[in-house]
Design a protein around this nucleic acid. Sequence first.
DNA 1: CCTATTTAGATGCAACTGCATATTTATGGA
DNA 2: TCCATAAATATGCAGTTGCATCTAAATAGG
Lengths: 152, 152
Amino acid sequence: MPPPSSSPSESVVRAWARLERAHRAAQTTVEARLKEAGLPALAWYDALLELERAGPAGLRPFELQREMLFAQYNLSRLIDRLAAAGYVTRAASAEDGRGQVLTITREGKAIRKRMWPVYAAAIEDAVGRHLSSVEAATLADLLGRLYSRQAS
Amino acid sequence: MPPPSSSPSESVVRAWARLERAHRAAQTTVEARLKEAGLPALAWYDALLELERAGPAGLRPFELQREMLFAQYNLSRLIDRLAAAGYVTRAASAEDGRGQVLTITREGKAIRKRMWPVYAAAIEDAVGRHLSSVEAATLADLLGRLYSRQAS
DNA sequence: CCTATTTAGATGCAACTGCATATTTATGGA
DNA sequence: TCCATAAATATGCAGTTGCATCTAAATAGG
């Protein structure tokens, strides 16, 4: 969407505009499906998945924050809700007096598992349906470049 | 990010996960730059751009909604704010008694123009910097497929 | 050791979003 | 023509996000 100037190339501007739209469309689908099924929101899934992957050692909030690219205050409250729902446990960190360690509970694992079929179907519908497997891999690759940690 | 099942292929799931992350990263950058510069948020730009493109005939809210893939109630309030800021005008539609017609004001055009350099730099930084022009075009193409209006 | 700075996390408050639903006008049939 | 339904837009309320800032612990210098 290239109005006046041209420091980003036209294709870059178009890519960005479509990133917005495509994301909005896909997210809307996914969130709607989860809600229809009476399940928690997308962000819950993502957090629970990371915690499940982290295993019994758990994760520090700031680590989770980096994984999810979530704002700090935002994550802090997401954790509140997950903890209130009984899906994660907060324990004081042994090595760092300021921090805590998050671990997923049995209920957390269970709900994540229960979310997956619905989530998977939504992903297929919002993304998979439109792309071949090779195209999806290309897309994943290009998107990965946009946030890989290597800066300037 | 493929836990148990496998109805969407692994590459599809990865593409979706990265769509989330990449979008979040890019949007965070863009919004931050606009805010730093004391300018309105991203959504304002998008709406103003569509309205400017529509010319003096303006747009109906529902048309803008389709362009932006914005939720109806969400757009309704965005328009409130744009109107309150003096950037758009709402007039009753001549053909449709339920509806209204939105047009961008001179001030609206001015602020959009003022936003562009900052926005453009942010896009370059969040997207352009990471991709060649061909890659950006490929990305735009693939993303476009995810929300083109042809359904199932 | 002591202070200045940085890092981890929480929080009050305002803005925004989502949901459900209301209101008004159009429209397609009986 | 009348009615049932659909479309366009608005809105009260609750939940979420963003901002700014706070506290407490860690860490780097001196």
